[in-house]
């Protein structure tokens, strides 16, 4: 099984062994770099990601507490979830139905985006190596398909930004950068899996780009991951509890 072969490769570090004596010197430098990005830098990235997310969430709640306490009085679990539920189901809202292609793409994109790195064997192995924790993994072929879905979706978003006037009008350089930050770990991850060329380079680039993405989540518009449940819940509560109207 391919899984076990790759697992053994990784665990025995054959994976990283220099291929020939000629390349030995270069290989060692790469090894050091790899160890750095997959070791200390990964630590830094994960800490910034988790602490950053927590910080942003706490900050916003403190702000609510300080200035808009009344928001709490409108919040309703029932209406919050009613609203969130409608919006996380494809085609369950008027606007999702109005944009069928975008809806399929954005749901496929977000699902693959979150599931792939968590249930990727190579990632689980790394967790296992450093923390001795492991969990169920997806078959590599599926992961590859999901990676391609993410990459394809990013291309779709890019084209949409370029050609749809209403999206283009509100597009800034930062929107392209954000899109690139999200696409990069998937592109490089895919490249390194196939070990086409410059395999080590791509793996290192991949890890770097993954770390950049993690760090970017709490501090860019990617923070919609954190805030969207809150804004949705508030609007859901307002519409449900005060306006007695649907918000989907």
């Amino acid at each position: 099984m391919i899984h076990f072969k790759r697992l053994n490769d990784l665990l025995s570090r054959k994976y990283w062994a220099p291929v020939s004596a000629v390349k030995e010197h270069k290989g060692e430098a790469m090894n050091t770099l790899y160890n750095f990005v997959s070791g200390p830098l990964a630590w830094v990235a994960f800490i910034i990601f988790f602490v950053g997310c927590l910080y942003r969430l706490i900050r916003i709640l403190v702000l609510v507490h300080k200035k808009e306490k009344y928001i709490y009085t409108y919040m309703s679990w029932k209406y919050s979830f009613r609203s969130i539920l409608h919006w996380v189901i494809p085609f369950a809202t008027v606007n999702w139905r109005k944009h069928p292609v975008l809806t399929i793409v954005t749901f496929a994109f977000h699902i693959c985006l979150i599931i792939t790195p968590i249930f990727l064997l190579s990632h689980i192995i790394l967790w296992d190596e450093s923390w001795s924790v492991s969990w169920w993994s997806l078959p590599d072929s599926l992961v590859q398909a999901m990676t391609l879905i993410v990459i394809g979706s990013c291309i779709f978003f890019l084209i949409r930004r370029l050609i749809s006037p209403e999206v283009q009008y509100v597009t800034f350089a930062s929107d392209y950068i954000i899109l690139a930050i999200v696409a990069a770990p998937f592109v490089t991850g895919f490249m390194s899996y196939y070990q086409w060329f410059g395999y080590q380079v791509f793996t290192i680039l991949h890890i770097l780009s993954g770390e950049i993405m993690l760090i970017a989540i709490p501090f860019t518009r990617l923070s919609h991951m954190l805030f969207s449940p809150l804004t949705r819940a508030y609007m859901g509560s307002e519409f449900g509890g005060v306006r007695h109207a649907r918000d989907w």
Partner: peptide, 25 residues
């Protein structure tokens, strides 16, 4: 202004999906 404005500005992903809601548009 406070959290609401901040959350709205920071969260908007510039997707333009609100466009067709507006009769002016």
């Amino acid at each position: 202004s406070g959290a609401r404005l901040k959350a709205y500005v920071d969260t908007c992903i510039h997707c333009g999906l609100c466009s067709e809601a507006c009769h002016y548009y």
